[in-house]
């Protein structure tokens, strides 16, 4: 895997990145930005602006049609397929629709990344239970997703995203399916995670939350990056 000299200190760098799902229809168009490590960033914009696509590029669920993406200093353009799992294990992802596996318990769902990384069973059980307790669902470890409320499911999903202590947490509209009170609690949770050293990029269209937490924000509109709010904390490419 190629390491970019100019991006080793950066969390991620996008250089003229475009993404098309079909010819002539660009979901992202010439997006360029750089984010320093360890920060908390909002990714805002209306529905269909390309927020989810940008996150998908970061966790390598998509490959860019053009441009270059650096993550933790690695050029993803040249990443081999067998290198991707190790990179992905440094990223936690929280989805709007939680994506918990219905026939696994909360504990089994949350522990999945540790299992995939081949963690010791004792450590896996103990650490995952502690984490579920920390996110507020320690009393529901043996419950299946269908037995949990939307807020509880999202907390399990957050636990799963951070269980193997990732460098970066990507959250795609994590509060889209929960009430406002739960949304604020979840935001506080993300903030705490960030203070513990995990960089957070949180995609949302809820302006009230963005303004309330006063974090740097990237704004997307129709596939274009239109602003880097609080740019003093956002690196220049």
């Amino acid at each position: 895997m190629v390491k970019a000299d100019n991006s080793t200190t950066m969390l991620t760098v996008f250089e003229g990145v475009s993404l098309s799902y079909s010819p002539g229809q660009k979901v992202l168009d010439d997006v360029t930005f750089a984010l320093p490590s360890g920060g908390f960033y909002f990714l805002t914009g209306p529905s269909g602006a390309g927020k989810s696509s940008l996150l998908r590029l970061m966790y390598q669920a998509e490959k860019p049609s053009s441009g270059r993406i650096y993550l933790f200093g690695h050029d993803l353009t040249y990443a081999r397929r067998d290198e991707l799992p190790l990179l992905r294990r440094q990223i936690g992802v929280v989805f709007q629709d939680f994506r918990l596996i219905p026939h696994l318990t909360a504990l089994e769902n949350a522990a999945l990344p540790l299992r995939l990384a081949g963690a010791d069973e004792d450590y896996l059980q103990r650490h995952t239970k502690e984490l579920l307790t920390w996110v507020g669902v320690g009393h529901r470890t043996e419950a299946y997703p269908s037995e949990l409320s939307g807020g509880e499911q999202q907390r399990v999903a957050i636990a799963r995203a951070v269980v193997n202590k990732p460098k970066l947490l990507l959250a795609d509209e994590p509060t889209g399916n929960v009430d406002d009170e739960t949304a604020i609690k979840l935001f506080h949770l993300f903030d705490e995670l960030n203070k513990m050293g995990t960089a957070v990029i949180l995609a949302t269209h809820q302006h009230n939350l963005v303004e309330r937490f006063r974090k740097p924000a990237l704004r997307l509109s129709a596939g274009h990056l239109t602003s880097l709010a609080s740019s003093a904390r956002v690196g220049e490419v």
Partner: peptide
């Protein structure tokens, strides 16, 4: 397919 994509995102290898 969604479960497979999720497993990839969580860091599972194709071989796993």
């Amino acid at each position: 397919q969604e479960t497979m994509s999720l497993l990839h995102v969580l860091g599972a290898t194709d071989d796993d």
